[in-house]
Each structure stands twice: as C-alpha cells, then as structure tokens.
Computed example of a mutant assay.
Amino acid sequence: MDSHLLQINMYVNNTTCHVDIMQGVAYSPLLLLGFLLNSAALYAFIAKRDSWTDTHIYMLNLAAADLALILFLPFRIYDAFHCLSKTYFCTFLISTHYINMYASIMTSAAISVHRCVAVRFPLQDRARRKKKAAALAVCLTIWVVVVAICVLFHESNTPQNLWTCYERCKNKRLPLEFLLTLVFLGFFTPLLIIVFCSSYTICTLLKTDDNSVEKKNIIGIVRANMIVFIVCYTPIHTALVLTYYDQPPPGWQFNITTTHKFLLLSEWIATTNCCLDSISYYFLLKLFSRDRGV
C-alpha cells in the first residue's frame, strides 16, 4: 500500500518513476552490437569515398540513420533503471528516435528501388554511376520529410502528454492524422515498395541463366532484407493502431495493459533492425559491386 501511495504521489507531482529493468537489459546488447556494426559499416564506406557511387550514398545514409538511433539508446537504458525527469528533453529523445527510424525505413525503400532499377536496366544504370546528385537529393528529401513531420506533430509528445520520459499517457491518444501519417506514409507505402521491388528483383535474377554462387547469395540477401523489414516494423505499427483504440482501464497510470506491453516489445523489435541492416546491406553491396559494377 505504501509503495502504491508513493507512486500516486510521484505521479501527482509529475515525477512518475516506472523502473523497467527488462527494458534496460534488452536494449543494452543492441547498443553495443549496433554501435560496433554500424560504426564498422560507416568506416568501410568512408574509407572508399574516392570510388563512391549512388549505391554507396544510399548505404551511407542508411548506416548514418541507424547509428544515430543507436547513439541515443544510452538515455533509454538510463531511463529504464533510474528514470529521467519528464521535460522537453524527453520530447527531443522521442522525436530523434522516430526521425532516425523512419529515415532508415524510407532509405531502405529507396535502396530497393535503386536495386530494382539496376537489375532491370543494367546498362543504363552503369551510364549513371557517376551521377550521384540524384541519390543525394533523395537522401536529403527523406530527412527533410521525416523532420518536417516530427516538427509538425511535436506537441503530441510534449511533457504533459508523457507518463514517463519514453512513454505516453495511456489516456492520451496520438492525433489521428499523425497516426495515419506514421502508418501509411511511414510504413505501409515503404512496405509496398520494398515487397514489389524485392519480388521483382528476385524474379528477374531467377530468370537469368547465371547459376553462380553470387547470384544465389544476392537472391538470399534480398529475400532476407524483405523478411527482416516486415518482421521488424510490422509489430510496432500494429501496436500503434491497437494503442489508439485501446481503452485505458481504471487506474490507468498505475497498470500496464497487454497492448502497452506489446508496444514496448514491438519498439525493441524495431530497434533490432539497426543491427541487421548493417550486416545484410553491407554484404549485398559487396556482391552487387562485384557482380554488376554498381
């Protein structure tokens, strides 16, 4: 009873502290692994900057988005063990997390389109290898779009709407237009692009007479990229929709609902993509560079 009253008092005084050791333990290995892998990927790209193509630019943008997300994980881990105060710094942390996540999602879609075009029009693609301006423009557009959306809806995650530094109050829903933007523009559209382009790339490669190990590896990695994208990002957007329609029970501020647990788990699953990207796309880049000269 005393702990319950203490929790009530902390909430009333806007200093809610919900220690979640499991989150801290779960995110710690992602921080270490993600930092090492994405740092290595960035180093590999930068080391070959004299021979960059548009493919390298897309890959560099993806690695940068993933690494930026990883670099802010220490705050989430600290919050899980000690609780950060609910300030506008929390709004910044939440915004930064989602900006980098959706920049990664959209860059993955751009890479899928680029890869599909390279397979469909290999000669034309070679003729444009030195034209990196388009790739730079696409990457810049991605960042402008995700930052603009975040700024437009920044009030959704201001301190008065937060239960803890990283969690919204369960009785305060995301604005419907913000939810629709995240689900359809941020996820569903890139999902359709990735599924279509990956499927087309695989089918095109399967029709060739080449039975080399490189071709089989490319097909395997393209298929794996598509599956990983679906597995990593479908749960969190499903959870966002479920959370919007989930009605908080009495005493919502002190009870964790099943939907809320699913949201926390899905956020962790989405974050694991930062580690997987740096592995799969790096090897795919090497294979494409050797086999098709892109």
Rank of each mutant, 00 (worst) to 15 (best):
L5F: 13
N9C: 02
N13G: 01
C17A: 09
V19W: 07
I21W: 10
M22D: 10
M22V: 15
Q23P: 03
L32Y: 14
L33D: 05
F35L: 13
Y43R: 15
S51Y: 11
W52K: 04
T53Q: 02
D54S: 14
A65S: 14
I70E: 04
F72G: 03
L73E: 09
R76A: 12
R76Q: 04
I77V: 11
I77H: 04
F89M: 06
T91E: 06
T91C: 07
H97Y: 07
I99H: 00
M101G: 12
M101H: 10
I105H: 03
T107M: 02
S108R: 01
R115L: 15
R115Q: 09
R126M: 12
A127E: 08
A127I: 02
A134L: 01
A135N: 01
I142Q: 00
W143C: 07
V145E: 05
V146D: 02
I149N: 08
Q160R: 09
N161P: 03
Y166N: 11
I194P: 03
S198Q: 02
S199A: 09
S199C: 07
I202R: 01
L206V: 09
I218K: 03
A224G: 03
N225E: 15
V228E: 10
I230Q: 11
T238E: 10
L240A: 06
V241E: 05
L242W: 04
D246V: 03
P248C: 09
P249L: 14
T257Q: 01
K261Q: 09
F262T: 08
L265V: 10
A270E: 09
I279F: 13
L284V: 04
K286E: 04
K286Q: 05
S289N: 12
R290F: 03
G293V: 06
